[in-house]
């Protein structure tokens, strides 16, 4: 387990190589969680509007991004 100090050092890293890689990795992780959560929500019958509301984006945005892959509610 890292100490709080060590974590804080990483998060506030002044080295752009470290900091930017962390941002990219976090973004990729968030995107994957989004894919899994939206697939699940659609499977459970959630509408694109309901999903968009929770994500804080417009229905168009979420549908354009995920609609082609996930398709209609089954």
């Amino acid at each position: 387990m890292e100490s709080t100090l060590e974590i804080a050092e990483g998060a506030a890293s002044q080295d752009p190589d470290v900091g930017l890689r962390a941002v990219a990795a976090l973004r990729e992780l968030a995107e994957r969680l989004e894919v899994l959560q939206i697939e699940n929500a659609r499977r459970l019958g959630w509408s694109w509007q309901e999903i968009a509301d929770r994500l804080g984006v417009t229905k168009q945005t979420v549908h354009r991004k995920h609609g082609p892959r996930i398709g209609r509610r089954s």
């Binding site: 470290v18 990219a24 990795a25 976090l26």
Partner: peptide, 25 residues
């Protein structure tokens, strides 16, 4: 490719434990 592989080392620098996230997911 590094991004596709999910960079656990980079996540670790901001205190995110990829193994823990993966286990829960």
């Amino acid at each position: 490719a590094r991004q596709r592989d999910l960079d656990g080392e980079a996540l670790d620098t901001i205190g995110v434990d990829l193994d823990a996230v993966r286990a829960r997911v």
